[in-house]
Design a protein around this nucleic acid. Structure first.
Length: 567
RNA sequence: CGGGGCGUAGCGCAGCCUGGUAGCGCACCACAAUGGGGUUGUGGGGGUCGGAAGUUCGAAUCUUCUCGCCCCGACCA
């Protein structure tokens, strides 16, 4: 990296005391206040000089570790022809997230939200023989996804920078090796960046494929919930964290089933209040679209439906769609709020946990009516159960050896074993040792470069501002000369130190503004430079510099040499 | 896409109800004082009040349409 001026007065940096009202989370506010980014339009940001320096740091670490893992950097076009997407079948399936456009010849294109199609096209043209495998191509590039609701600054923007890598192997076992190499590289990357993170099992979603894991930076503001257990090393995105039917037993009935009036009681909360029972004693029945008319999903009242699990069940429509109030009435004879499984004529799917319930309360399939004392084996035939709910803190792990905790995370990396989904659709083959054409096995591996910057701030800040982990800091050290514009001694000392540190290879920001000390201190803390050196007449007289690390509570007066040793 | 809200100077906001010279704070420019935690004073520059149409002698203000943005939800990697 070539470093030009590092004088505050020439750096074009404006910090803000007030933030635009739409900034919701800490990282967004601080990035705006510290002048890292400026908003252009919804989900579009300009990276200002200070922010760009941080971005480049992230890229550098990612690039180094990818290279070390043997991946090859290339750069694909951001704009992609529709034909490739039609070939893979995603032109129609990807939906409104795909930004489409037309050129002057009326040909269709999209701005790439990801590059499976393009890389598969590259691979089928370039790769002929199994001897060329394995290969892993990567790029660091701008993507665009037309998010329904961009928010949280760079955490969920529409345009963003991503490192995406794609591996090609002859077969599944090769793919597994490539995947393992990326797992190792990713772990190294996030460790080097100084972030607290966790690797979790994940749903492979739209991209398709089998095995997939996500790398999450832990932060309370994270959009994802992750379930983990330290006892048995289990960790999964809550979307895929499985619940088990094991060990659930049904207590015998102690009450008769009774239909009672419950006027206006439509929610589980209202129901438990009205009847003075806990939510655990109620059955929640949701009507969703099925592949052949509406179906019912039944959960314990305090449990949450997991959409990802539900839409994978045969008979349930994917994506999961709640039935309209009209079709609920048609299917059950009553409106939402009073639906229950007793005597329902449509297919019903029960969550595992429901089987452990007895003397339950559920909707009466009649307006303003509920059943109490409902029991399996007597009022409802004991059903086969399925996994429909989100796990909760305190649940057993699937292995049964641990207890789950729930944390929030920001997804910054995702690795997939795609298998042959794209290579088969696009006929990407090589000759195998037998001289036959064989479809290659692919993996894909993404890292949200821009998102990492936001995630790092979510995890590292205080009331005064950002606290950069050293590898991400835009500068190593900030020089704060007191009264530099009145004291020739301070000015000379500051300039000398600036030059000396630069020559030693430090990235040093000299605050040469004619500003009051308080302003300089506040800005230095806001932008989060790890090391601060204060130069003053007072200190000079004693041959001292004042040193403070951004995360220290107090500053220290040290001999010049001592202070420089701390950098 | 459904529900709610907001568009007035670069940013944060008041003014609108009850029509009559467009305001405040921050930021910016100048001068002065101050000089180790966002200091103070004085002076200044900057706004077709999102846009269009209408009502009116007169519209930031009332009416209609329209565009943009934000929040909640649905959706989505």
């Amino acid at each position: 990296m070539v470093h030009h001026t590092m004088r505050f007065s020439e750096f074009g940096l404006t910090t803000l005391k007030e933030v635009p009202a739409d900034a919701e989370i800490v990282s967004h506010k601080l990035m705006l206040r510290a002048g890292l980014i400026r908003r252009l339009a919804s989900g579009l940001f300009t990276w200002m000089p200070l922010g760009l320096r941080v971005l480049r740091k992230v890229e550098a670490v990612v690039r180094e570790e990818m290279d070390r893992a043997g991946a090859l950097e290339l750069l694909m076009p951001a704009v992609q022809p529709a034909e490739l997407w039609q070939e893979s079948g995603r032109w129609d399936k990807y939906g409104p997230l795909l930004l489409r456009m037309t050129d002057r010849h009326d040909r269709d294109y999209c701005f790439g939200p990801t590059h499976e199609e393009v890389i598969t096209d590259v691979a089928r043209r370039e790769l002929r023989s199994y001897k060329q495998l394995p290969v892993n191509f990567y790029q660091i590039q701008t993507k665009f996804r037309d998010e329904i609701r961009p928010r949280f600054g760079v955490m969920r923007s529409r345009e963003f920078i991503m490192k995406d890598a794609y591996s090609f192997d002859l077969d599944q076992s090769g793919l597994e090796a490539s995947y393992a190499r990326m797992h190792t590289a990713y772990t190294a990357i996030f460790e080097r960046l100084g972030l607290k993170f966790r690797v979790v099992d994940a749903d492979s979603g739209e991209i398709g494929g089998s095995r997939s894991q996500e790398f999450h930076v832990l932060a309370d503001s994270g959009e994802d919930a992750i379930a983990y257990s330290d006892e048995d090393n289990y960790a999964s995105n809550i979307e895929t964290a499985a619940t088990s039917p094991d060990g659930i037993e049904t207590a015998p009935p102690t009450a008769d089933m009774e239909k009672i009036p419950t006027p206006g009681v439509k929610t589980i909360e209202a129901l438990s209040q009205f009847l003075n029972v806990t939510a655990e004693q109620t059955l929640k029945t949701l009507i969703v679209e099925g592949t052949d008319g509406p179906v019912a999903l039944v959960l314990r009242g305090d449990h949450e439906l997991n959409a990802v699990k539900a839409q994978k069940i045969a008979g349930v429509a994917s994506p999961l769609t709640m039935a309209s109030p009209e079709s609920v009435v048609k299917a059950t004879g009553c409106g939402p709020g009073f639906v229950g499984p007793v005597g329902l004529e449509i297919p019903v799917f029960y969550d595992h946990a429901t089987i452990g319930m007895s003397d339950s309360v559920c909707g009466g399939n009649e307006k303003d009516m509920h059943y109490t004392g409902v029991n399996f084996g007597r009022d409802i035939e004991t059903p086969e159960t399925v996994d429909l709910r989100n796990v909760m803190a305190g649940d057993r792990t699937p292995g049964g050896r641990g207890t789950l905790s729930i944390a929030r995370g920001i997804e910054v990396g995702h690795i997939f074993q795609l298998g042959t989904k794209y290579s088969e659709a696009m006929d990407a083959t090589v000759q195998n040792p037998d001289g036959r054409n064989q479809v290659m096995s692919m993996g894909c591996y993404g890292i949200g470069i821009t998102r990492i910057v936001g995630a790092a701030i979510e995890q590292n800040h205080d009331d005064a501002g950002i606290i950069w982990p050293a590898p991400l800091a835009p500068f190593d050290v900030v020089l704060v000369p007191i009264n530099m514009h009145r004291s020739d001694d301070v000015k000379a000392a500051a300039e000398a130190l600036y030059t000396e540190l630069k020559e030693k290879g430090y990235e040093v920001l000299l605050d040469d503004r004619n500003a009051r000390p308080g302003v300089m201190f506040a800005d230095a803390e806001l932008i989060g430079i790890p090391h601060r050196l204060v130069i003053s007449d007072r200190g000079l007289a004693a041959g001292e510099l004042e040193y403070r690390h951004r995360s220290d509570a107090e500053s220290r007066n040290l001999k010049r040499e001592e202070a420089l040793k701390l950098l």
